[in-house]
Design a protein around this nucleic acid. Structure first.
Lengths: 212, 212
DNA sequence: GTCTATACCGGGATAGAC
DNA sequence: GTCTATCCCGGTATAGAC
């Protein structure tokens, strides 16, 4: 029982340390990227030393991989939830845009992080997809096809429409520094701009595809 | 005169070597990023040795900076050219989308490169902007305002519209690996998808803003 | 201007005591 | 599980011969 207690205590400590490392690593990787991040910085951030990093995760790449995978899955899980809402297409688009924009605004480093690292190592993504098929977009595609055949929206390639909607949401978030410089936004102006986009993007899309 | 000839010869060799380094570095930085790139790899790619890199450019960061600045300026120069075309707004949008999409498709690493590095060092961008004001978007904004007041298009915040158009073009390029995985594109399917977008995006935008 | 050799440093990873 | 000390590799940068 002594053993039991100890092991429980240790388990708790383990989990705790592991989580601390995980969150510290996430923070550092998000801002510095895989190559830019330093194991020392992660250790400092977590309040432990470098050796522990290798004790819990075998290598820098493994640690990064775990975080990337979790972020990626979480991101698409949320996306899937929004996309699966039980609403008629046009309302669903409004619902999706508003919530998706807020989601990525609150977690703006994640899309930037994914886009940035994808480019350096495209394989990582394929593996995650292969391992756990993510087919939320199929639902959306079906909705679109139905709406077209019902004459609610004009004919349009569902893939193009989906890419349009997602691009309209993600681009202004990942390109924030450029937008702020080019359009002379301060932090408040930018926030305001995105706030207005929640309505504007839906209006823009629906205006383009709605019949009559 | 001997001197002259020699110096000319040297100048030419200099320029040549400098350019070789520049192009090699560009290639490596584009694929690996600032932190991921190795000076050795750049030297190999250029067919010279590491010491020469430091002879021509003092440090890795300086070398990177030169390339980033040139890419960035070139990219916005082209954008400015397209945006300044002397056409009525709706035709200009068609013209812009078709050519901009082709431009970034041909140089797809550049937007990805810029977005990725911006995130790690936002200051670099501000400095480039400060040094050389790039105000092409102002022309576009004026066009839009005029079209609205003439009743050609519905009222819309010009900034939102510009961000919409650019986002619709850039997103599918920088997110290529994700799109290919999610939408099951091979290289040819992807190329085809973008080709169709050249017409689709313009149609999508114009449909949304045109009056009657 | 170009090369070789080398100094120097920092980072990832491991060994071993506690 | 946690720490300290250390190995080792590879990268940036420089010195110096040609």
């Amino acid at each position: 029982m002594d053993n039991n207690i100890h092991s429980k205590t240790h388990e708790k400590a383990d989990k705790d340390t592991e989580n601390r490392i995980f969150e510290a690593a996430r923070k550092v990787f998000h801002t510095k990227g895989l190559d830019g991040a330093r194991m020392q910085e992660i250790a400092d951030e977590a309040g432990i030393n470098k050796a522990m990093l290798h004790y819990y995760f075998r290598s820098k790449d493994k640690l990064f991989g775990s975080i990337f995978e979790e972020d990626f899955k979480e991101f698409f899980k949320r996306l899937a939830e929004l996309i699966s809402a039980d609403l008629p297409l046009l309302e669903k688009i409004e619902f999706f845009v508003e919530n998706y924009l807020e989601l990525i605004l609150q977690n703006s480093y994640i899309p930037a992080f994914i886009l940035s690292e994808i480019h350096h190592n495209p394989e990582r993504i394929k593996n995650i997809f292969l391992e756990k098929g993510i087919k939320a977009e199929q639902i959306f595609m079906d909705d679109i096809k139905t709406a077209i055949s019902l004459g609610i929206i004009r004919p349009i390639d569902p893939k193009q429409l989906i890419v349009n909607i997602i691009g309209l949401c993600i681009f202004p978030i990942v390109a924030k520094p450029i937008l702020c410089t080019m359009l002379s936004f301060d932090e408040k102006g930018y926030r305001n701009f995105i706030e207005e986009r929640k309505k504007e993007v839906a209006r823009f899309v629906i205006n383009s595809i709605k019949i009559n």
